[in-house]
């Protein structure tokens, strides 16, 4: 039982990282209907920027984190302005392909930095090594930090969407772009803002992942798991993305422990296939009707 809980907790903490990436993914999807396959690469860039500032330039942790997060956010916003803006009105599939291409470009850019491409690295924080005890369960402090940070960010987003003007504008755009435009919402700045926020969240995810897993140039593949997470949660639902991510992390962790080797690698994909077959709109999704 203790072992089981232990696995669940470690699954939750990795699931929180998935959840954050999925959150960024859903944020962009809701505001702009863009399916962003480059999200994993954004996370990778965020993690490596953090690594550069913390380990190579040895800046203080909080300063490094702020710079890395804002740099990634700006990068994401720039991508939206330069590459995605001209694609407005094109079929969704074409936009998806553009983001796949952008993902490749970001990975190539990371490969060009010699300090990044050569090694798999890990960021050590003051928390590394210490543990938190909850009765018989032992959690490493880094894992606990991931869970706490995710909870804080999610609360922050909840407040942002419910209480602020910009958050309400984003919600309006996500419900109907046309109606929001008529009501005077500046749709364009909303979509840039969505990318900015998504960039920031994925950078946070990357930074949180860095102490508990190795970071390397190809870690963007991990971001691909955010898409199943988003789908399980219902794709257009922000709380759904969180639940989906955590569920995914737990399933993976349990599959890795109880099932034969190989299952943990594909657990995410088996889960998403099951969800898509039984309940294609996801756990929290609204049913989508389409006008011909």
């Amino acid at each position: 039982m203790v072992q089981f809980l232990q696995q669940v907790i470690s699954g939750v903490s990795i699931g929180c990282v998935y959840a954050l990436i999925a959150l960024g993914f859903v944020l962009i999807y809701k505001a702009t209907e863009t399916v962003n396959f480059a999200i994993g690469e954004l996370m990778m860039i965020g993690a490596f920027l953090g690594f550069t500032f913390i380990v190579i330039w040895s800046l203080p942790l909080w300063l490094a984190a702020i710079i890395a997060i804002s740099a990634t956010a700006l990068l994401a916003a720039m991508l939206e302005r330069v590459f995605l803006r001209p694609m407005v009105g094109e079929p969704a599939f074409a936009i998806l392909v553009v983001t796949i291409g952008l993902g490749f470009c970001l990975r190539a850019a990371a490969l060009m930095v010699p300090e990044w491409s050569s090694e798999t690295v890990r960021i050590f924080t003051p928390l590394s090594g210490s543990v938190v005890r909850l009765g018989p369960i032992v959690i490493s402090a880094d894992h606990a930090a991931v869970i706490v940070a995710t909870a804080l960010i999610v609360t922050g987003f909840f407040v942002f969407f419910k209480r602020t003007r910009m958050g309400l504008a984003m919600q309006a755009v996500s419900q109907s772009q046309l109606a929001a435009t008529y009501m005077g919402v500046r749709t364009r700045s909303v979509s840039t803002l969505a990318w900015l926020l998504a960039g920031a969240i994925t950078a946070v995810a990357g930074l949180l992942l860095a102490p508990i897993a190795f970071i390397h140039v190809n870690m963007g593949v991990l971001g691909l798991k955010a898409i199943p997470a988003a789908i399980i949660g219902g794709f257009s639902s922000l709380p759904g993305a969180i639940v989906g991510g955590i569920l995914l992390g737990v399933c993976e962790s349990l599959a890795g422990f109880y099932l034969p080797a190989g299952f943990s690698e594909v657990a995410a994909y088996i889960l998403v296939l099951v969800v898509l077959t039984i309940r294609p709109e996801g756990l929290f999704g609204e049913t989508i009707h389409k006008r011909v």
């Binding site: 590459f83 001209p86 694609m87 094109e90 074409a94 936009i95 392909v97 553009v98 796949i100 291409g101 952008l102 993902g103 490749f104 470009c105 970001l106 990975r107 190539a108 850019a109 490969l111 060009m112 491409s117």
Partner: peptide, 21 residues
Amino acid sequence: QPALRPMAFGLLLVLVMLFEP
């Protein structure tokens, strides 16, 4: 140059979609 291939790949995907779908 390990970066050359993904870069060419990605840029081509983006440019084709933008300019000659």
